[in-house]
Amino acid sequence: MKTLALAAVGGLSLTLLVATSSVADDDNHNGYKRPKRLALPSDAPLLWKEECAACHMLYVPALLPAEAWRQQMQTLEQHYGSNASLDAQQAREILDFLLRSSAANRLPVEPSATAGEPPRISQTRWFAHKHDEVSAATFQRAAVGSRANCVACHHGAERGDFDEDRVKIPR
């Protein structure tokens, strides 16, 4: 019952977002849109913040669809070349959070170009589109690091703030 009500509210707000974004957003084409509601959920567990930001920046769940997170969590022993394994109980708690807080992301799962790797946020079509004016050389600057290091330019990225007006690309 409660779930139904939540789903209804979720569906309504999604409709509203889509309606407004078709006017203001240039990313609505062929039904493929950039992820919405990127803000960090207020119920984000400390466990997730600690475990998923020890080696890299904290990626907010809405950046990938739920199924992509499931694939991430199933392959932690080979996580882009590193062993990021967790004990089963912690993995379960983190997966639960990722699944429920990425529900607003209705995008298809886009597999990584590298076989055997889980999906990469930086290889989604919306990411490519949003960064089409950023050169490969810019991404390789020492102060940027790589396409995976959102915080280099989006200083609020770990809170889910990717507002273009606040982007500062370091020299």
Partner: peptide
Amino acid sequence: RQPGKTPAHR
């Protein structure tokens, strides 16, 4: 004794 850095920039 010095801070380090991961390949993922942390």
